[in-house]
Design a protein around this nucleic acid. Structure first.
Length: 901
RNA sequence: GGACGCUUAGCUCAGCUGGUUCAGAGCGCCGCCCUUACAAGGCGGAGGUCGUAGGUUCGAUCCCUACAGCGUCCA
């Protein structure tokens, strides 16, 4: 075996192990009736996307969970894949085309789609390769893409079934229209932000009268499509106007003045203009009053031929200016106010959304929502942190129908077929459509031009990736999946809808035992949902491409290593809190990796030293229990503590707590104390046989630590684990995870060790305060009734650089010494000629002040009869013990201070 | 306007069910040290009346109420 380099270099290690794991099938999962499955489906990233810090966090968490469960003996299956990101991908390809001076219509639908597939083949693999760099242990054989044949089957099947059930319908409604993409968007694809605008007050003359109506609007150009004015029926100011006719300025159209309770009497003048084709509220109002709907825009939000010639062809914002000018010139503009209002923009291109009347397809959500709401209420699906349940509940109880059609080409084409006379049906194929419509093979049939919202395929992900609509062992075994890890920002887009879809379509499908699923726990898509933090930069801004504040994770991995990035991000990510990330913070992880590396290096050096040439055959499968000393029993107690805490933390999805447990155990307990203590045995004059046992045990404990750390830092742990001994083809990734054994957790041992540690700390403090060089050895005198120090005084030699310890009698005491009291034990460091009396006095005074304050506090407490009577007896007793201990220590400290010359 | 979250050391944050020196960690800072695993390190040290005001309790960083500031989502 070759010597390990002095510093850990991840680049020498990571790719090599990733290749090994993958090519040996160590990520793979198969149906195994002897094991419990543990399944995660990846939130599919956009196929043409690049890895972001958000992906890093999300996938690190998934990998930690999946590796942990795998090592615990579950059949751990992590299904990866990507989605086709309809609008985003089409957009990217159209941009590329425009560089060639082409648009999609030049190519035609078929050729264009082919172009997108080519694009996908070229750039689609990037994010998947990037994920590998992070070390994720997905079963790559199971990789899926939402436009795959199988998944497209699922989409079609779902659409047709829902159509037949009346859960999908078509209608002319106001939708959110993106004039840039020229497509409808669903409600949650619109971002709202406050914007400074104006409120224009416009005068509409009333026919046959000198009176006029004044309406206020933030969008004056829409007046060209007005078909009414509305007032509140109870509004005394305007009652007399109801039923009269107003003349629309600039247009001359006669429009009625109607009454509707919807009108807000307090807003503006209390009269509103009604534009049914360009405002969702006006649309509903228009339906109630059977008003005409005049659409004044084309798909690009330019004015169409329904408006006076002088406005035709103008862009909507250009038109706004022109209309305001003309209103003013005509004397119709009463006043203009500044006004802050919410403006909706496209979540992809940030173009202002236009409410637009068009034919679209919708999913009826109410019937799906009820069961989905129930399983979250009754805990069949648990959210972490739980508070997201409220958000979910609010959305689910106020749910609106989902607009699923998109006027683009890249996506699943809507499986609806029309005959020339306009009748239509949904079908899995043209033949089926003909059958359903009852028409002959020669009647021309036209398929709907639109495609489906990308989320219409992602909401099927937990079962479509497992082969549905085909039945399979995989589907029966791995669905319901176990944990979903995703961001709260897509709780509506995705999480809620997956619950709905899985419950709707998995009901009745066979379980592993062959019986049809009907219980809620069999039809939910997953049991736990972990909502990740949002990654922000050091200033707290969301990371985004446009701000340029998002580090490239690949560069971070190159600089610090994937393990360092993984550890750091998990360490920084508390459950439910945002993460403020900056690249330099990866030093936490890098330094930790290096620390572990060097601990391993140290152990291996001593292994070779002590065991000699046959060290490679060392058996590390069982813990050697011979020659246990305090440090051994202590570290084993700490180890099992750590395992238990780790288990609790991770079970509760406290990722940061999990990493802290690892960090504290490995760095502080193992490296700072245990390794230092075994040095006393390695370098001491113990028999060779004892040294052999001690080094083997240290390696065994380190082996356990590597297992625990592996899910978080897979690369460095696998590399070291392989170095510890000849593994005969075994790999850490598939090794049993440590289980906490309460038998090893021993409070007495921990208390004894803590006492020794405190004594060492006290001596170190004396050394530090008195500026004694680490190289200078000192002698110590103690007065103690604690036998631990007698037995394990040798621990002080190495850790406090103590040359000799002498027990002293009651009267005895060095003349000039620095002193400390630890749990009643008096410690004296004679420092003839070295001690600065002033420094020492200050030290003691500080300690006295601290203790005196504590004593006073406890005295006050114990003097309070309420406390003594009402607090639990153990608490009171503990306080009393504390008091007498502190008082005794205080007494000794004061005497030492007095006697200081 | 409604819902939720946050406020702890100079900075970034832990503190999961009220009581163990519970007031912590990392970074930064100060001092000493290249002690034969690690200077990406070791040892020591300074730094906080836990946002404010009340309340519950024998006891509050922790539970309740109000307020202030910041943030997110929804309307």
């Amino acid at each position: 075996m070759s010597e390990l380099p002095k510093a850990y270099n991840p680049q020498d290690v990571e790719d090599r192990w990733y290749r090994y794991w993958e090519s040996n099938g160590l990520f793979n999962a198969e149906v195994n009736r002897n094991k419990k499955p543990y399944t995660i489906v990846i939130p599919p990233p956009n196929v043409t996307g690049m890895l972001t810090m958000g992906h890093v966090l999300n996938n690190t968490i998934q990998d930690i969970l999946i590796r942990w469960k795998r090592m615990q003996g579950y059949e751990a299956c992590w299904i990866p894949g990507t989605d086709h990101a309809g609008i985003a991908t089409q957009n990217a390809v159209e941009r590329a085309l425009s560089k060639e001076g082409l648009n999609r219509h030049d190519l035609g639908r078929e050729k264009f789609i082919q172009r997108v597939w080519e694009w996908k083949e070229t750039y689609g693999g990037v994010i998947i390769q990037q994920l590998r760099k992070l070390g994720v242990s997905c079963d790559w054989r199971r990789e899926r893409f939402t436009m795959d044949e199988g998944l497209s089957e699922a989409v079609k099947e779902v659409f047709v079934r829902m159509f037949d059930k009346g859960l999908i319908y078509r209608g002319k409604y106001i939708v959110n229209w993106c004039p840039f993409h020229q497509t409808a968007l669903s409600d949650d694809e619109v971002d709202y932000s406050e914007s400074n605008g104006h409120l224009w007050h416009i005068r509409y003359p009333i026919e046959g009268s000198s009176e006029h109506a004044v309406v206020a609007t933030t969008r004056p150009e829409t007046m060209l499509g007005d078909t009414a004015i509305a007032v509140h029926p109870k509004d005394e100011r305007y009652k007399k106007l109801i039923g009269k006719t107003a003349i629309l300025p600039l247009v001359g159209r006669k429009i009625p003045i109607i009454a509707d309770e919807f009108v807000d009497m307090t807003f503006g003048s209390g009269m509103v203009k009604v534009t049914p084709a360009h405002d969702p509220n006006d649309f509903l109002l228009g339906q109630r009053h059977h008003l005409p709907q005049i659409n004044i825009f084309d798909e690009t939000a330019h004015l169409n031929e329904s408006v006076p010639k002088r406005y035709e062809g103008l862009d909507r914002f250009e038109c706004r200016k022109r209309v305001v000018q003309d209103l003013e010139a005509g004397g119709f503009l009463v006043k203009t106010e500044l006004h802050v209002h919410n403006v909706g923009t496209c979540y992809r291109c940030h173009t202002v959304i236009e409410p637009y009347l068009s034919d679209q397809w919708f999913v009826k959500m109410k019937p799906l929502a009820a069961p989905a709401l129930r399983v979250v209420h009754n805990g069949k699906v648990r959210f972490h942190p739980q508070r997201w349940e409220k958000v979910y509940e609010h959305w689910m109880t106020n749910i609106r129908d989902w607009c699923i059609s998109r006027q683009i080409w890249w996506g699943h084409r809507i499986p609806v077929y029309y005959t020339p006379d306009g009748t239509f049906t949904a079908a899995r194929s043209e033949e089926e459509a003909r059958k359903k419509l009852g028409i002959a093979a020669d009647v021309p049939l036209r398929q709907d031009e639109d495609v489906l919202d990308t989320w219409f395929s992602s909401w099927l992900w937990p079962f479509s990736t497992l082969g549905w609509p085909k039945d399979s062992e995989d589907l029966r075994y791995f669905n319901p999946t176990d944990t979903l890890v995703t961001g709260p920002d897509i709780i509506f887009f995705w999480v809620a809808r997956m619950i709905m879809a899985n419950m709707e379509f998995m009901r009745g499908e066979p379980r592993l035992d062959g019986k049809p699923r009907k219980n809620e726990e069999d039809v939910v898509p997953f049991r736990d949902v972990y909502f990740t933090s949002i990654i922000r930069d050091a200033q707290g801004r969301k990371m985004s491409k446009s701000l340029g504040n998002s580090p490239d994770p690949l560069e971070v991995i190159n600089e610090y290593g994937a393990d360092a990035l993984r550890f750091t991000i998990a360490y920084l990510a508390p459950l439910g809190q945002d993460v403020f990330f900056s690249v330099e913070k990866c030093e936490i992880g890098r330094n930790f990796a290096n620390k572990i590396w060097n601990a391993g290096r140290f152990l291996l050096m001593n292994k070779t030293e002590i065991l000699g040439s046959n060290a490679g055959e060392l058996d590390l499968t069982t813990l050697p229990v011979e020659h246990l000393d305090l440090a051994d029993r202590w570290i084993l107690s700490r180890l099992h503590h750590a395992i238990r805490d780790y288990d609790r933390a991770l079970t509760g999805f406290h990722l940061n707590e999990t990493t802290k447990v690892l960090y504290d155990f490995i760095w502080h307990d193992f490296c700072d104390w245990y390794v230092e203590l075994v040095k006393t045995r390695f370098y001491g004059d113990e028999p060779q046989e004892v040294k052999r046992v001690v080094v083997t045990r240290a390696l065994w404990i380190f082996d356990q630590a590597l297992r625990m750390l592996h899910p978080v830092m897979p690369f460095v742990t696998e590399e070291l684990w392989q170095h510890l001994t000849d593994r005969k083809g075994q790999a850490l990734i598939r090794t049993q995870f440590p289980a906490a054994n309460e038998r090893w957790i021993d409070p007495k041992t921990e208390a004894d060790m803590e006492f020794v540690q405190n004594v060492i700390n006290a001596i170190r403090n004396i050394r530090g305060e008195n500026n004694i060089a680490p190289s200078k050895e000192i002698s110590v005198q103690v007065r103690s009734d604690n036998s631990v120090l007698e037995t394990y005084g040798s621990y002080l030699r190495k850790l406090a650089r103590v040359a000799s310890i002498r027990q002293i009698g009651s009267g005895e005491k060095p003349k000039l010494a620095s002193s400390a009291i630890v749990n009643g034990t008096e410690i004296y460091v004679p420092l003839e000629g070295l001690i600065d009396v002033e420094v020492e006095r200050a030290r003691l005074q500080k300690e006295i002040a601290r203790l005196a304050a504590s004593v006073e506090n406890i005295q006050k407490k114990l003097a309070n009869p309420n406390f003594v009577d009402r607090a639990p007896r153990e608490v009171v007793q503990k306080e009393q013990e504390k008091l007498s201990n502190f008082e005794a220590s205080l007494e000794k400290l004061r005497r030492n201070l007095e006697q200081l010359a």
